[in-house]
Design a binder for these strands. Structure first.
Lengths: 116, 116
DNA sequence: TGTCATGTGTCATACATAGGACACACTTAT
DNA sequence: ATAAGTGTGTCCTATGTATGACACATGACA
């Protein structure tokens, strides 16, 4: 599923329960023109900036990192972390490329639990 | 140190040993105009695209990931890896943000050695 | 002393990014 | 039936990105 159709689906789903999720009202709350949001939802234009995507994620109760990924982007805070230690993170991420989800989850958990 | 001055320093260092590392010749080998490389090395323009940075890294025997980081970028292959599993990698990277280098290195080594 | 190479200044360009403004046709509630 | 709300089409614009082309002054060198 593309970013555009995913957003449309998500918003339409909420709209079914709550009329406040019209294109116009959502657009206003996230600070863009309705016509622009409409174009975004139809893939008529490229996905918006990270800031707008974050606002959209909050508005639609979606995970910002997932939405950003669908938009072909990566959160700028993650980029900053990687850029501070480029060799370290580049090596690690490339090593993890082919690892299954559960292995990565386990690493994350171990790290959080301070097993290092 | 900035990207620009680092590049200049690196190239000048090589040039001291080998006259083939003039602005003109390096520019030609990486496929840009000499005037453009000159501007890059003086910070007169923003760092070039990822492709040019990679070519420069190879030419100057520098680590591409490090050069990209200095240029405020992250390698596109890493971005692609992250975008495929955004939640997983976002969580992991944020957890690793404050970990010391040696801990991250150890994780990378364990992963490579298949301790998972 | 003329030739050649060196770095650089100036100007221009092509395309992408990130939207805003406004009008219009259709539906829905009153 | 009329007012309000809905989605969307068209046009416009500002800024950034990523270079190229060319000329020029200086210095090395044969």
């Amino acid at each position: 599923m593309t970013f555009s159709s995913y957003i449309r689906q998500s918003r339409e789903g909420l709209k079914a329960q709550d009329r406040r999720f019209s294109v116009r009202q959502v657009a206003q709350r996230i600070g863009v023109e309705p016509a622009y949001l409409s174009k975004i939802e139809r893939g008529d234009v490229a996905p918006p900036s990270e800031g707008k995507i974050r606002a959209l994620a909050e508005e639609l109760n979606e995970d910002p990192d997932v939405l950003l990924a669908m938009a072909g982007k990566v959160s700028s805070d993650l980029l900053a972390i990687i850029r501070k230690r480029p060799k370290l993170f580049a090596e690690l991420i490339r090593d993890l490329k082919s690892m299954p989800d559960h292995a990565i989850l386990r690493i994350a958990r171990d790290v959080r639990d301070g097993d290092w």
